[in-house]
């Protein structure tokens, strides 16, 4: 997207806000024509008078009209975002980073494993794969998604459209159920080994969630026979510029903002454990 000055955001109005959970909202913005991106990339969102922070894009690039960001209320920028209403203005610059390695995923079966807000970047790729123009380029799709409680599951409004499809298996789980919940209860890595019983040949595992969930999910995938290069995850680090210049998001010699945020597990094991 073209703006004057490397770090200057373009101002855009919020079209719609979807309340996902008690602390997560999805912000829908009209997509600028020159905002060309891939699933897995992120952008910097600027809240005037408050600050700027990086967020992964949760909409699919196949959606020509909207950009979506699903944002959890954690710090000052996200708190300010949550106070905004449709029609309010935010600044946007990006897209940044490398997205999912689409070339490598062509023809593969895709196992998505998400935890909490970690489904956001995965959703971008899931909807990309499900779109009519790309569906044939990929094999089966299996989505395992978990959150702490049923109330913490995001994109529940979209699940019916996924569940309807024959070419996608959706499996939901929560750490802790409640009276409204008749689904599965259990931690994602454990549930994964229960529900995904197929041979892992030609499957790629794509994982995103809280660090501890990623760690144990990768362990589970490895035990299930997934090769290191067939496990993909996306990482989070403190970022400012998004362009490999401000120097804080490195893990060893790699900048998460530029070389990532998507990394294969094969790559991850060569990196120092400092994230």
């Amino acid at each position: 997207m073209r703006c004057e000055g490397t770090y200057t955001p373009c101002l855009l109005p919020i079209e719609e806000i979807i309340e996902e959970t008690r602390d997560i909202k999805t912000f829908r913005i009209r997509r600028p024509e020159d905002f060309v991106y891939l699933p897995g990339q992120f952008a910097e969102i600027f809240v005037p008078g408050v600050g700027e922070a990086p967020f992964s894009i949760s909409s699919s690039p196949t959606n020509p009209t909207f950009l979506e960001f699903s944002i959890k209320r954690i710090g000052s920028v996200t708190q300010a975002l949550h106070r905004l209403n449709p029609g309010d203005t935010i600044g946007l610059r990006g897209p940044y980073g490398k997205g999912f390695p689409l070339e490598e995923l062509l023809g593969k079966n895709l196992l998505f494993v998400g935890g909490g807000i970690g489904l956001a970047p995965l959703r971008s790729l899931i909807n990309y794969v499900l779109s009519p123009e790309h569906r044939e380029s990929f094999g089966e799709v299996f989505v395992l998604y978990g959150a702490r409680t049923p109330g913490d599951l995001v994109f529940r409004w979209e699940f019916p459209s996924w569940e309807k499809r024959k070419d996608l298996t959706l499996c939901l789980t929560v750490d802790e159920g409640d009276t409204s919940w008749s689904g599965r209860v259990g931690l994602v890595p454990n549930v994964l080994q229960e529900v995904f019983t197929r041979s892992c040949a030609n499957w790629v595992g794509i994982v995103c969630g809280p660090p501890i969930m990623i760690k144990f999910t990768i362990k589970a995938l490895r035990e299930m026979g997934f090769e290191a290069r067939r496990i993909i995850t996306t990482l989070e680090m403190k970022m400012k510029c998004g362009l490999g210049k401000c120097g804080r998001c490195n893990i060893g010699p790699y900048y998460v903002c530029q070389d990532g945020p998507v990394f294969s597990y094969e790559m991850l094991v060569t990196m120092p454990e400092e994230y």
């Binding site: 770090y7 008078g49 408050v50 600050g51 700027e52 400012k240 510029c241 210049k245 401000c246 120097g247 804080r248």
Partner: peptide, 13 residues
């Protein structure tokens, strides 16, 4: 060369 981008001001800044 590491730098910070830090906002200054509320209604103008």
């Amino acid at each position: 060369f590491c730098f910070d981008l830090a906002l200054e001001g509320k209604l103008r800044g």
